[in-house]
Structures are given as C-alpha cells and as structure tokens.
Design a protein around this nucleic acid. Structure first.
Length: 137
DNA sequence: CAACACGTAAGT
DNA sequence: ACTTACGTGTTG
C-alpha cells in the first residue's frame, strides 16, 4: 500500500474512515474498568498461545476429564498470520455482509489456524513434536 | 463440501 | 449487559 504522498488523489479506500476499526473504537470507548480476573482457564489458554505449540497437553492428560473440558473451549486467533495481522474488515465478503446472522469474522481476517478444524491442528501440532494422540487408535 | 444459521464462550 | 466471533449442526 503506497503512502499518502504517492499520488495526486487518494485511493478509493481513503474515502472510508479506516483510521479506526470497530473493535478499536470499542476498546477506546469502553476502556474504563480493567478487570484482573485471571481464571485458571484464561490462564491456560493464554499460556497455550504464548508457547505457540509447546503444549503441556500430553495424550495421557487428554483423556482425563478436566482437559477434555478445556478442549471444549474456544481457541483464539494466533495473532501472527496474515489474516490476523489485517486490521480492517473488508465489508464485502459474505461474513461481513451477514455479520448479524452469520456471526463470523471477516473472511480476510479469519485466522489461518482457526480455519483448520480442531482435530486437524491438534494432530499436526502433536505430530510435529513427535507424539501421537491415542484416541486415533 | 461450502455456506449458512445459531448457541454460546470470551472479552469489554 | 452487550458485542464479537468460534464451534458445530444443518442445508443446498
């Protein structure tokens, strides 16, 4: 994307107020109370994403109830892939247009990790560190 | 199999 | 309480 001095007229994108995202506007507007409730679950997910693949999740624990419960929780975007790095919604994809009913993030912003279904990325993560999740047998 | 619809987890 | 968006069942 060229800088503002790159041409005589602004690109058509500039006619939109792209300076602030919906989410950003919200966080600016609503940044009053910062609750520091670090639930064990949030802590777990946070750690999980910080370590980016170095799971302490062994197949052994995977068959134990508390971890099964954790697996049921929603994943978060990796924050590192191209879609995650994208700042604004395209406003033209099906997800943007159907946001009220579809409840999905803009297709251009959908995290590459989350595009895979849970089992797929779990298996590849585990496979990449040389382990196998035993429920596949 | 992709797109859609909806429940609901997670964050503000 | 409200919004965003993940997970999953349903539909075409």
């Amino acid at each position: 994307m060229p800088g503002p001095t790159a041409g005589p007229g602004p690109p058509s994108e500039d006619i939109y107020e792209f300076s602030m995202d919906e989410e950003e506007a919200q966080s600016l507007h609503l940044h009053r109370k910062s609750l520091e409730k670090t639930s064990p679950l949030s802590k777990y997910i946070e750690t999980e994403h910080q370590q980016a693949g170095l799971f302490s999740l062994s197949p052994f624990y995977a068959s134990v109830d508390p971890t099964v419960d954790l697996q049921k929780k929603k994943r978060k975007k990796c924050g590192d892939c191209t879609p995650c790095l994208r700042k604004e919604n395209c406003r033209s994809c099906a997800n943007c247009l159907n946001r009220k009913t579809g409840k999905q993030i803009c297709k251009l912003r959908k995290c590459e990790q989350l595009k895979k279904r849970r089992n797929e990325w779990e298996v590849s993560e585990i496979d990449s560190i040389g382990l196998c999740s035993c429920w596949c047998h």
